[in-house]
Amino acid sequence: MSAQTAIAVRDIARDFESGQQTIRVLHGIDLEVKAGELTYLVGESGSGKTTLISIMCGILWPTEGEVEVFGTDIYNLSDRELVEFRLQNIGFIFQQYNLIPAIDAASNAAVPLIAQGMDRTEARERARAMMDKLNILDQADKLPSQLSGGQQQRVAIARALVHEPRLVVCDEPTAALDAKSGRKVMDLLREVGVAEDRSVIIVTHDNRIFDLADRILVLEDGRITHDGTEMPDEGQNG
């Protein structure tokens, strides 16, 4: 049986206004991402990858085109329905972690569950169980300021996965890490985040982890110029 389509992007374009000008940053992009895949989105700064990932996640509206996430046309949803869909189906791992400084690690990891309306005690227990999988349960009661960068990163991963989203999106998850720590993070994402009913998409410039991808998409000037299992030779530094 063929893998389920996680994301289907059809003829996506996006314009931005700059003074008197209209600038098109995405040009008619078509692609499908399968469940069970670890997909990288690679490109130089300004290539459109952040815009594309934002549209794929329901954060930024396209100027033209359609996006389906696990069969749901997300831009036909109302604003409230779209927020609810993201809460139920999408997990985010931000480059800067975005942990809440005033609450402990377990409470940070529990945020998506609390946002869904789960009782706080139950949400914390679920968060602690995910932190245990990530080998940071002993840090559950510490504030973010008491954690190392690597520990904060794992809390951010726990937060992204705790509500068992079908789509996990990571923005440069290894950018601030040394090579060894970066590989560990990617191994964790593959082990915990990639499943036959889930898809993980990573925006990255880090050529140290290119070999771990199932699929690499390269963007240049708002167009996909490469789609394969490896980086093209001329793009190894992109």
Rank of each mutant, 00 (worst) to 15 (best):
A140F: 11
V168Y: 05
M130D: 09
R154N: 14
R154W: 14
L161P: 02
I136E: 12
A156K: 02
G149P: 13
G182S: 08
L189E: 11
R154M: 14
V155H: 12
K142F: 14
H163L: 04
A158D: 07
R126G: 05
A175Q: 13
P173C: 06
V162T: 07
E191V: 00
Q146K: 05
R159S: 04
S148N: 08
S181Y: 06
M130H: 02
Q153L: 06
K180T: 09
Q146I: 02
E191S: 08
A176I: 08
L167M: 05
L161A: 03
C170E: 03
G182Y: 03
R190Q: 11
R159K: 01
Q153C: 10
P173G: 08
R190M: 07
L134T: 00
K180P: 00
K180H: 11
V155P: 10
Q146C: 10
D178V: 09
D132S: 15
A176D: 14
G193Q: 07
I136N: 04
A127S: 12
D132T: 12
R126M: 10
A179K: 15
P165I: 02
K133M: 11
Q146M: 15
V162W: 03
R128Q: 14
A176Y: 11
L147A: 07
E172H: 06
L134Y: 09
G193W: 04
D187P: 08
L137G: 06
H163M: 00
V185A: 13
E125S: 10
Q151K: 06
L137H: 10
R128I: 13
V169Y: 00
C170F: 03
A158I: 02
L147R: 04
L143P: 10
I157H: 02
P144E: 11
V169G: 05
D178K: 10
L134V: 00
A158S: 03
D187T: 01
P144Q: 09
I157Y: 03
R183E: 15
L147G: 09
N135K: 13
V185Q: 09
S148A: 06
D187I: 00
E125P: 00
A175L: 15
Q151W: 07
R166Q: 12
A175F: 13
E172R: 05
G149Y: 03
G193L: 03
S148E: 06
D138R: 01
A176C: 08
